[in-house]
Amino acid sequence: MQLELKNVKKQYHGNEILKGITVSFNSGKCYLLLGKNGVGKSTLAKCIAGDEYIDAGEMKVDTDVQNMHTLVSIQYQYFESYKYLKIREIIALFQKITQQAQFSKELFELLGLNECGHILLKNASGGQKKSLALFLAVLLNRPILVLDEPFADLDLLKKQRLMHFLETYTRENEKILIIISHEVAEFQRLFDYTLILHEGKIAEIGSTIALQEKYNHAALPGIEGVYYAVTGQILGGKIS
């Protein structure tokens, strides 16, 4: 499957956030969406997911489907619904109401959901809510999966195990995986392609390996170096 965005534009209250995004996403690949806060990463994700309307441009997939947004599963940063249900009950509810739900025992265990299943959502920690949101996004079993800061709030071991899971999951299930993350240093292996959003446009796009070769930076190696070379900024700040 291929997801194609052509000159996608989006504005809020006259402020243009996305100024013409053109990009293609292919199944079986993982894409890292990189950019500073407020640059439009989450807006782009919401447009792909269909939570926001686009003002101009086109979004399409190469399969016969009435509404392409039904093909997208998105993990929002937090899950705040069903506060008086236990985590395992929320999962059970989604399992019951989701068509072709994909219950991944591996992900369930690595996120530690078996240990916190008895906790009411209102009493769950930020990390547990994040884990639940992540699990549900995968459970929905859509061809396109968008994850917003999936590694934040998770401990180091879970982060590593999650990276391995996502790597295998994307390839074996032929998913399009789009990840928005500021944490990139330890997970470079996961990202097949990197997109850098800057001032509402795609400033750079390419295979992660090719970009690292193109922008070889001694002080800031890896994707962080690429980002610095393209934008003049470091992830999460700016070098004066």
Binding site: I74, E80, R142
Partner: peptide
């Protein structure tokens, strides 16, 4: 449910 964006989740379940 609206404020917590629950319907964004529900619409993806297929129900």
């Amino acid at each position: 449910l609206k404020a917590d964006r629950t319907f964004y989740w529900i619409k993806r379940t297929g129900i």
